[in-house]
């Protein structure tokens, strides 16, 4: 396990075709005006269409076998970005390249193939499983449709998927409500893996679980990574989990990537003021009776984000330039990118 980690760290800076590449991804959600709204606008009422820039011009590439942790607070666009990467949601602008080819330009069998290669595991194991389907159908339906198994081989195929996710195959005729939270999350994992993906997007997949169950699921993720050579985009607000699992960490704030770096680097030498304050806010089990460090203020509404650097109203180091100019994401050390004017 640790040997494969070392390897992926060692090859970290060798240019190699990434498995997934995001180029200038932007996702906007628009609330169109209804008839009354349009009428009121014509009559001079100060109403306009509301646009949320959930994801704003994000570039990211993920190499084969890498675990990338995507961190941010609620409303920062991390889940939206995850959905775009998983192919569930089309981007408003920008391109998603799958092994160098634009997913949007693929057709027919190729497009289907690309979609199957990336699967998603969701946060809420209670809401992401159809309560009226038996476990064997939840897990086996998609592989059957896509021809990965046949009617005859269905039972063996499903058994194998369940066993791999740590579930007893004799339970496959049960319904989701008969399982505990941790077991349900395993069903979600078995479902995602049943279509033989190479790339998994885990959106807060352990956030709803108890600590002891969370450890079991995290260990399962690491085992599967080693066994099946999987690549992960691991979305979480829990820095402890991300630190433990990821090779590289990407920090988002209000739709933009503010910093990305290899795991050790970011936890040892965080550069962006937001990352620094985020790290100091995390409660640590090693800490005793300490003063909790605080960032002032809250995340502004994404409907009306502040100009310039989105973080400037909360930043202790903000100066005039931060209020007008958006800082570019620049490399400050090998593999370490940060978007802050303090870096010059």
């Amino acid at each position: 396990m640790s040997a494969t980690m070392q390897q992926s760290q060692g090859t970290a800076h060798v240019p190699e075709r990434p498995i997934i590449e995001l180029i200038g991804i932007t996702k906007r959600f628009e609330k169109k005006l209804d008839f009354i709204g349009k009428l009121a606008q014509k009559l001079g009422a100060p109403i306009r269409e509301e646009i949320v820039h959930a994801v704003d011009n994000v570039n990211l590439s993920i190499r084969k076998g890498e675990v990338v942790g995507l961190v941010g607070e609620s409303g920062c666009g991390k889940s939206t970005l995850g959905r775009v990467v998983a192919g569930i949601m089309p981007p408003s602008d920008g391109e998603v390249l799958w092994r160098g080819r634009n997913i949007a330009s693929l057709h027919g069998a190729e497009a289907k193939e690309a979609k199957l290669r990336a699967q998603m595991i969701f946060q809420d194991p209670y809401a992401s499983l159809n309560p009226r389907m038996k476990v064997q159908d939840i897990v086996g339906e998609a592989p059957l449709v896509h021809g990965m198994t046949t009617r005859g081989g269905f039972d063996t195929y499903v058994d194998e998927q369940l066993r791999r996710a740590g579930l007893d195959p004799t339970l496959k005729k049960r319904y989701p409500h008969q399982f505990s939270g941790g077991q349900r999350q395993r069903i979600g994992i078995a479902r995602a893996l049943a279509v033989q993906p190479e790339f998994l997007v885990c959106d807060e997949s352990v956030a709803a679980l108890d600590v002891s169950i969370q450890a079991q699921i995290l260990n399962l993720f690491m085992k599967l990574r080693a066994d099946l050579d999987l690549t992960y985009l691991f979305i979480s607000h829990d820095l402890g989990v991300v630190e433990h699992l990821s090779d590289r960490v990407v920090i988002m704030y209000l739709g933009r990537v503010v910093e990305q770096a290899p795991s050790e680097e970011i936890f040892a030498r965080a550069n962006h003021p937001y990352t620094v304050s985020l790290l100091s806010s995390v409660p640590r089990i090693e800490a005793r009776k300490r003063a909790f460090a605080t960032v002032k203020g809250e995340i502004p509404s994404p409907l009306n984000p502040p100009p310039g650097c989105h973080f400037h109203p909360r930043c202790p180091h903000a100066f005039d330039r931060c209020k007008v100019e958006v800082p570019a994401l620049k490399e400050i050390a090998p593999g370490h990118l940060s978007a802050c004017h303090l870096n010059g």
Partner: peptide, 13 residues
């Protein structure tokens, strides 16, 4: 022991 930050990075929890 199950708390991730108490474990060595990359090792099973």
């Amino acid at each position: 022991g199950s708390v991730p930050s108490r474990n060595k990075r990359g090792e099973p929890l």
